[in-house]
């Protein structure tokens, strides 16, 4: 229990630090924000803006206050549940924009993770069982390429083959299952390779243990040995890697969402960075970091379930 409290405290600290870092980084170029707001509000009129108008905007958004005060106000509003700012471009609360985009990202990341874990674990077991045979070597070379190929390139190749040449699935879009297919596969490839690699190693190690030899000596069929004895013990490092991969996956969603015009948080982040829509950038970073921390927290919980020998605090 104490461990969980500590863990939650650290999570809160990390979220806070990430927000603070982005906030101060975004404001390192001083004085630009008022012009920025003006530019987004009156398109085409930014040349004729007067000093007075700029001052008006500055005082309305409290832009003349020192940075730490602005940040303090932002944190206070966030904790009080009053929202985390208003977008300069969309003129909507950032929370509303995030809530609109969040389901798409969760859907994409969830589907990719499911593919990566299912395919990665089963291929890893297969590879371990055929150690040093040809199929094992082929799979190992494949993992090497899997972790080395940039996922945006994989996505483009998949579009090239499945959408443009074979015309099986649409190039981009959102909503149906066939839209989800290409982005999820492209995004999952990297994690799949990593999961498979760890599964293989961990499985090989487990299969060399004495209790497995004993189970074999007892005459248990291989299928049962794997599913009853080996798999559960081999899963621990795999779960760790899944936690690591979550960061990769969330990073990858940015490129993938951009390529497939997927309306998620990643594409919102990139668009907001290009438009210098600072409150939204801040909100996106907050959302992505929180998601990442939450998943890793869940994985920590899972540890104790998988291996009762591990006890926290």
């Amino acid at each position: 229990m104490r461990y969980f409290l500590k863990r939650l405290g650290f999570m809160a600290l990390t979220v806070f630090a990430a927000c603070a870092l982005t906030f101060f980084l975004m404001n390192v170029i001083p004085g630009g924000t008022a012009e920025l707001i003006l530019k987004h509000t009156f398109v085409g009129l930014e040349e004729s803006a007067t000093e007075e108008q700029l001052n008006q905007i500055s005082s309305r958004y409290n832009l003349d206050d020192p940075l730490y005060l602005q940040f303090f106000r932002w944190v206070k509003a966030a904790i009080a549940g009053e929202g985390i700012g208003t977008s300069y471009v969309f003129r909507k609360p950032v929370l509303y924009l995030l809530a609109l985009r969040l389901p798409a990202t969760i859907q994409l990341a969830g589907a990719s993770m499911a593919i990566a874990v299912l395919a990665g674990v089963s291929l890893g077991i297969y590879s371990a069982l055929r150690e040093n045979r040809i199929s094992d070597h082929i799979l190992r070379v494949a993992t090497l390429f899997g972790v080395s190929m940039p996922c945006f390139w994989v996505a483009l190749l998949l579009i090239l083959v499945f959408s443009l040449k074979l015309k099986l699935v649409p190039v981009a879009g959102y909503g149906s299952l066939e839209n989800l297919f290409l982005p999820a596969v492209a995004l999952s490839l990297h994690s799949m390779a990593a999961v498979m690699r760890v599964t293989r190693t961990s499985m090989l190690e487990t299969l060399g243990q004495e209790y497995i030899r004993f189970a074999k000596a007892k005459g248990l069929p291989l299928r049962k040995i794997i599913s009853r004895h080996a798999l559960k013990n081999a899963m621990l490092p795999v779960v760790t890697v899944i936690g690591f991969q979550m960061g990769n996956l969330l990073g990858g969603t940015i490129e993938i969402e951009k390529i497939f015009a997927w309306p998620g948080i990643g594409s919102l982040l990139v668009d907001s960075i290009s438009a210098r829509d600072l409150p939204v950038v801040q909100g996106c970073v907050l959302a992505i970091v929180s998601m990442f921390l939450f998943v890793n927290f869940l994985i920590d919980m899972l540890y104790t379930r998988l291996d009762p020998r591990i006890r926290y605090g």
């Binding site: 650290f10 990430a18 870092l21 969330l250 990073g251 960075i273 600072l278 950038v281 970073v285 992505i288």
Partner: peptide
């Protein structure tokens, strides 16, 4: 160590993206 932990506990690409995007 605390600073290291914080830097290691969120996805790097996103952070790099934000920094370059803003700078």
């Amino acid at each position: 160590s605390r600073v290291i932990d914080i830097f290691l506990s969120f996805p790097g690409v996103i952070f790099a993206l934000t920094i370059v995007g803003v700078l």
